[in-house]
Amino acid sequence: MQASASFAMSASATPRLLNALRCELVLQRNGAPGAMALQLQNTGSEAITLLRRNTPLEPMRANFLRVSRNKHRLQYVGPVVKRAAPTLEEYVVIAPGSSMLHEFDASQGYDFSKPGRYQVSWNGELLDAALGSAAPNPLDPNAARILCAPITFER
């Protein structure tokens, strides 16, 4: 049953792209090594509701950043967590035209202690995201993806 259903489904290999969300990583110049912020701006005409889980919008609990020092990729040294289905409190709504800036500490997952030229990028993957005003259904998530500008800096 399940097998035939899976073959019948027309599915794309990558989650849908949320073009309306403009995304940028911002360095916190005076912060600790790894202190940065995620800036999200909803340039569309509909509200965007997204799950914060495994994104920079919550404390680091998954390997969602790509960090390199002098072009060598750094290993993720943070935790990975198995959690129950999300609750509605784990979602954030970004109204049309509005933006948010969320500070986070990437050193929870990667070692920024050595000097060098760092590049940090976020894969932009959202475990669940919805357009419009309807409440999300955590039990039937719709993965999505946003393009996010990386940052490069010297430490």
């Binding site: 290999a13 990558t14 998954a62 967590v81 289905a85 475990l127 998530p141 993965a143």
Partner: peptide, 27 residues
């Protein structure tokens, strides 16, 4: 492995849409 999808519904979806990811997904 990583956590690319949580829960049975999301894991089944991942299998149909992205098997390459599914074989790297812990759930």
């Amino acid at each position: 492995t990583n956590d690319y999808a949580y829960g049975q519904t999301a894991a089944k979806k991942l299998a149909t849409t992205n098997p390459k990811r599914a074989i790297q997904n812990a759930d």
